[in-house]
């Protein structure tokens, strides 16, 4: 019986690869979207019915979650005007990141925040990237929809602040993983740091560059999905997540080239933009 589920999982991994391939050609893009959706759908069905060692199922909660999420997603996708598509993608992407962060939080709560070095490194990295993808996407959404203006989000010495925050985050992950545990206060502080870094990472980037940033954050969400796949030992999530992660990075670079920009220029635009102006003059 289990082998049947495994075969279905294998088929849905192939569907994801073929779907993504077809999505990158104009004639077959629509079919590609449907194949990828089928792949994800099959993956969800397998996850619901796959036999587990200690299963309490709690199907009620799963059903409620899928129903509410599905309805909200489909309705908002149908209602959004065509001009607002990129910010909708950003919003959805943020939700995916938030989901990843929640999964890491649940893992930490279930294990009383105790684990060995590798487990904690993986989980805390997932928590960090999840929250960064979440708040970053929310800021990108706000900028694209015009709710946040560039001038409201000026951060002094943004590049230096960001590098410092990133170093602190990596340091904290290694420290907590080395200790093998973290207290509730540590967890809250680390969460706050992740949330703040997402904002400061996207805030200094100009509104016109937002599509590139969304693509980068999309790739981040893919990586969190892959890490969650390692945490829950699900090969479909690992494969799909890595596919999204690596193709997202390539797509980000392609978008930069299409806009005649470099990725470094976009990310640290606040001083390289001046340099580019000087160069063109």
């Amino acid at each position: 019986m289990i082998v049947l589920f495994d075969i279905v999982l294998f088929i849905s991994s192939i569907l994801l690869i073929v779907g993504l391939r077809k999505l990158s050609h104009p004639e077959s893009a629509n079919n590609g979207n449907k194949l990828a959706a089928l792949g994800v759908g099959l993956g969800i069905v397998v996850a619901i019915f796959y036999p587990l060692e200690t299963q309490n199922n709690n199907y009620l909660f799963i059903g409620i979650g899928l129903l509410i999420g599905g309805i909200i997603g489909v309705i908002s996708a149908k209602k959004v005007p065509m001009t607002a598509m990129p910010e909708m993608v950003s919003l959805f992407n943020g939700f995916g990141g938030f989901s990843a962060a929640l999964i890491s939080l649940i893992w930490l709560i279930n294990n009383n925040s105790i684990g060995n070095y590798t487990d904690l490194t993986v989980v805390l990295t997932n928590l960090f990237l999840g929250f960064v993808a979440f708040t970053g996407s929310m800021v990108a959404y706000g900028k694209l929809s015009g709710k946040l203006k560039d001038k409201h989000l000026q951060i002094p010495y943004a590049t230096i602040v960001n590098i410092c925050l990133l170093i602190v985050a990596i340091g904290l992950i290694s420290f907590f993983a080395y200790e093998g545990k973290l207290t509730t206060t540590h967890l809250i502080l680390f969460t706050v740091l992740s949330v703040i870094y997402g904002v400061t990472f996207v805030a200094p980037i100009g509104g016109a560059d937002m599509p590139v940033v969304i693509s980068l954050l999309n790739s981040l969400t893919g990586i969190t999905a892959a890490i969650s796949g390692i945490m829950t030992d699900n090969k479909l999530m690992l494969l799909g997540g890595i596919l999204v992660g690596s193709s997202g990075i390539i797509l980000t670079l392609l978008m930069c080239t299409a806009m005649n920009r470099t990725l470094i220029g976009v990310l640290f635009g606040n001083f390289s933009a001046k340099k580019e102006d000087a160069g063109s003059n």
Partner: peptide, 17 residues
């Protein structure tokens, strides 16, 4: 489309629940 694929993350939540 690739953003939608990263919605796979909900499988992790289902397995945890």
């Amino acid at each position: 489309g690739s953003n939608a694929i990263s919605g796979l993350i909900l499988i992790g939540a289902i397995l945890l629940i």
